[in-house]
């Protein structure tokens, strides 16, 4: 998304408050191989009171999200070397299936993070059982839309 225009970005006060309600105290995993992106995404989520942990690869994310764990949600970069975000998510869903056999239902909301909207079409996210996506860098209004769909139920 190259045409981020700077004018409409004054965040709505309402959204800020709602994001605070949704994210405060939540434990969130941010997965990105790029450490600048990682620290910026983590900073954006911490602003609303989330407890943020980071992982720098798909593999590291799988290790952290294998049930049982205490994460409320995960923001996953799509384009990473070795294992991309789609593949990592598919693996996490498989582990959740296995955990289900022992009686407990696990489904950590995973939101894709991507610089190009085209790259992460809705279909692809659905296919990998991702729960939504936000563009990177994270923008408040979009973050609210994505997060309110997956965290309002908790």
């Amino acid at each position: 998304m190259e045409n981020v225009d700077g004018d409409e970005s004054q965040p709505g006060r309402e959204e800020t408050g709602n994001l605070q309600n949704l994210l405060c105290g939540k434990k969130i995993l941010v997965v990105d191989d790029n450490r600048v992106n990682r620290i910026v995404a983590a900073g954006a989520l911490k602003k609303y009171g989330a407890h943020v942990e980071c992982a720098d690869s798909g593999k590291a994310a799988i290790a952290k999200l294998e049930p049982p764990h205490t994460f409320d949600a995960c923001f996953m970069d799509i384009q990473m070397p070795e294992m991309d975000g789609f593949e990592a998510t598919c693996n996490i869903r498989k582990l959740e299936e296995i955990a289900k056999e022992s009686g407990k239902i696990w489904h950590v909301p995973i939101l894709a993070m991507t610089a190009d909207v085209i790259q992460a079409t809705y279909d692809e996210c659905v296919w990998c059982k991702m729960d939504g996506y936000v563009s990177q860098p994270i923008e408040e209004e979009q973050l609210y839309k994505a997060v309110s769909q997956v965290l309002s139920r908790t």
Partner: peptide, 21 residues
């Protein structure tokens, strides 16, 4: 505008955020 967003993330809890980034 993204840089402005970063400046807004720098606060008492995170005083050196911009420097780190």
């Amino acid at each position: 505008d993204q840089f402005t967003q970063l400046q807004m993330l720098q606060d008492a809890n995170n005083p050196d955020f911009i420097q780190e980034v």
